[in-house]
Design a protein around this nucleic acid. Sequence first.
RNA 1: GCGGUAUUGGUGAAGUGGUUAACACGCCGGAUUGUGGCUCCGGUAUGCGUGGGUUCGAUUCCCACAUUCCGCC
Length: 376
Amino acid sequence: MKLQFEVQKVEKHTKARLGKIIYQGKVYETPMFMPVGTQATVKTLSPEEVMDTKAGIILANTYHLWLRPGEDIVSLAGGLHAFMNYPGPILTDSGGYQVFSLAKNKKKDILEEGVAFKSHIDGKKLFLTPELSIQIQNKLDSDIAMSFDECPPAKAGYDYLKASVLRTLRWAERGKKAHQNPNQMLFGIVQGGAYEDLRKLSATKTVQMDFDGYSIGGVANDHESKEDMYKAIDYSIPYLPHDKLRYLMGIGEPIDLIEGVIRGVDLFDCVSPTRLARHGHAMTSQGKINLKNAKYKKDFTPISRTCDCYACKHYTKAYIHHLISCDETFGARLLSIHNIRFLVSLMEQIRVAIKNDTLCEFRDAFVKDYYGEKYE
RNA sequence: GCGGUAUUGGUGAAGUGGUUAACACGCCGGAUUGUGGCUCCGGUAUGCGUGGGUUCGAUUCCCACAUUCCGCC
């Protein structure tokens, strides 16, 4: 059974939407932040720990699971949910981004047929096509599959981007034809950099193909400016249907989540809460802090007094500082729990603000606390 | 007691008679947006055991002392 989505309210002063996803009798509210579990695990966390953060959908990765253990093994296990023991909805990325990120400075051939590149594990030659990506995702049996797209670098010029957008449209069409899992949604992806006409072209053509939902891609590449990211969203959203989910791919900085919601986005995913955790950072309402810093050596207070996560309820900064200093995985685990909970809780606050039509006020207050003077 | 050997930062160490003493780890910071999980980028010895001497100049050469390790008595 495909998951169902409906919009319940649009905020008075912005394009922010409050919605609900119904999945196996359970209701999940949007806007929502999705933690990333690339290799069929949210790094360092058990599914129970992920659910304790009140996260809903999690993201897994087609490219990684294709290489290891292979989609046939996941299928033999009974699909991703059974394999990894996660009862909530799972979204799989198509592998398009991995071609960009893993093979960034390496040889890769982007052809009409697909992309030839080398495995990051053993250097073996690989060839990923739109059909293959969808077939793999069909077998993984995720709840939401993504079209195979090209993620051009942020600095790619207009002509390249245009050719890339047109190719991604052809790939989307091929992927849609190859899609055969009736229980799985398939999302199309809008590309086009920060160009209004390309986003419009990409969005309208993708929507014509009638996908189950739509993503805005190509915004987490390199170090694109925030301004361009927001443009990319603004230029895409007007062409997306009101009744379908909108997913901004790869974005997870707190301010970007809020700005994304304001512009009409429902779903976000990002590696930042777990990656920052592994590198010793915790997100707080006062900004990001580095638990590795010596000043936390004797700080016997929790990361946040008001946070309701497992880490904050039971452990101190001094203890986590110690764990991180010793490279103990329990430190990364506690910080992952906290950071995911932080973003999930931010989305809860955003939803309340949408309900009250006070999202802009919420943003201004949040930014003042989180970024202080640094942000304007 | 005699002979030999060595003595460089928090640690392991490289090095040269002449502007800023290599490198690694550690430590101190910073980065990280559809995750290549042990990543990347900075900073970190005002001094080369101590005291003399040679020299325009010594961490580098000489002497003494201290300490280390090895052998002999």
